[in-house]
Amino acid sequence: MFLVSGCREEFVQGRRLYEAKCAGCHMHDGTGLNGITPPLVGTERSYLDELPCIIQFGMFDTLQINGSTYTDFMLGFPELTSVEISNISNYIAFRLLNVKQPKYSPVSVQLRLDSCMKWRKPSPVDPKKDTIRMFQSI
């Protein structure tokens, strides 16, 4: 029984990737660090539509969340595949935010990534040279 329940844990890869790539700044529970790294939970505006694009390509806008301003940028994770991004996104949506919505699938994530390739802002830093806020291989 325990074995079965152990195997049935959902979002395993999503959790592992979240803890390796995201939790260092956004905290394990997604609460962020006030003024420095924005929270993922408790935000007024839903960002779930853009989430796959933010993970892959980064976030370079100044954000206003719950009365705090966030000016630091986040570099994306170009090394992640659409399968991995859908797993992270599902972990964030279902485990951290507790939303009830259709799951991200690798196909839907790939479609979103293809569409935001067109409108996204170019990165202000050179990802090859500047690894400042890349969270590689923690």
Partner: peptide, 15 residues
């Protein structure tokens, strides 16, 4: 300040 790994976690606990 521009720490890419554990500093925000530490700063949160220090806070």
């Amino acid at each position: 300040v521009s720490c890419p790994s554990i500093c925000p976690l530490m700063t949160k606990q220090m806070l």
